[in-house]
Computed example of a mutant assay.
Amino acid sequence: MVHTDLTYITLSQWLLIVYQVFGGCCTNVFVLENLFKNNHSEYGLGSIITFSQFLFVSLISYFANTDFKSSNWRYLYLKQTNIPVKKWGILVIMYFTVSILNNQVARFNITIPVHIIFRSCGTVVTMIIGYLFAGKSYNRNQIISGIIITLGILISNIPLAFPETPSHKIIINYEFLMGISILLFATILSAFMGLFNESLFKAYGTYWQESLFYTHFLALPLFLFISPLLLQEFKVIWNDDHYISQDIPISNQFISLLVNVGTQYLCIRGVNILASKTSALTVTVALIVRKFISLLLSVLLFDNKVSTSGYIGSIFVLGGAFYYSVSTNKKNKQQTIKRE
């Protein structure tokens, strides 16, 4: 059974989730921005970062899915899956596409703060997709929170998409609109992915370690289609002329890449635990809070500029997410009292 609120998670589980989702994900965003800031090549590095993350997660989660006694080398000593492998195929394609797109938008002058704020619309997109394609229904408070979040997204991004020149002329920022369009497509696909993942857990049980391994391992062959680009981006990172020290000829960019993949594993692991115990919508809201912590770190540590409308929009989005969490907790407590 999949619960729909964080109140059903035990204290030890919640602490583990906080450590991995907030600690791992926030550190990951910090290192990711550091990689982009120190990249002075024509390549965006998004592809090699995504591939490294998928490879590392596959290796580190492999042993949790092995059975060396009952399986054999033909099956890579993998144990029998609880969820049919063909079911993972659909999820793998969606996850691969979402990951590639999210790491490519930096090439369209989409800063980390803008990326974080816009991706927060995942709550609204999940609600719409859930209503249209999964027969889900939402109460008044959830709908109101979705409206608040949508207003926040619009307030933050419209001035960036249609900036005003010093002569008070409104222009169209086509590069920004292209990046936002890619983000929107990735967010919609991510919503479908979350609902599909939720349906798998409901049908077969909550095997998040199996999900973590197969969604990354089965995606590795897909990187063959972009292998030339991966090689070029790896050369950029490896040949960076900023080293840890004079005695250790390893570039800072390469070390940052290693830290990035490690923290990405912690982040994904925490999200998978959360997804196995809550609904897709609750996962989205929890991640919004994490994203705003990353937003603050990006502004404070990398001196990223956020406009007044950006701050106002951020408050709307965070307020909408908080309103959803409070109203959902209140509803669950009322239902518990009625059952008693």
Rank of each mutant, 00 (worst) to 15 (best):
Q20S: 03
V306Q: 02
T97Y: 06
L296T: 10
Q264P: 02
K277N: 10
F36L: 12
K338F: 12
V259Q: 10
T7D: 13
V259D: 06
P84L: 03
W14L: 08
I172P: 10
E33I: 01
S325Y: 14
V85T: 09
F185I: 15
S199H: 12
K291I: 00
I170Y: 14
S251K: 04
I155W: 00
I128L: 14
V283S: 00
I144H: 01
G194I: 01
S120F: 07
V2P: 11
Q264R: 08
S251H: 07
V236L: 07
P221I: 10
S58V: 07
F162H: 12
T308I: 14
D240W: 05
I147Y: 02
N38M: 09
V317T: 13
L258Y: 00
L301H: 08
G262S: 08
I83P: 01
Q335K: 15
I180N: 02
T97L: 09
E175Q: 15
A191E: 05
F118D: 05
G122Q: 09
V85D: 02
A191L: 06
P113I: 08
V283L: 09
D247F: 12
C121I: 15
N103D: 09
L91F: 03
G179M: 05
L297V: 11
M94D: 03
Y138Q: 01
N139H: 07
I237R: 00
I9D: 07
N65L: 08
Y75C: 07
L160D: 03
V105C: 10
L297E: 10
R119M: 12
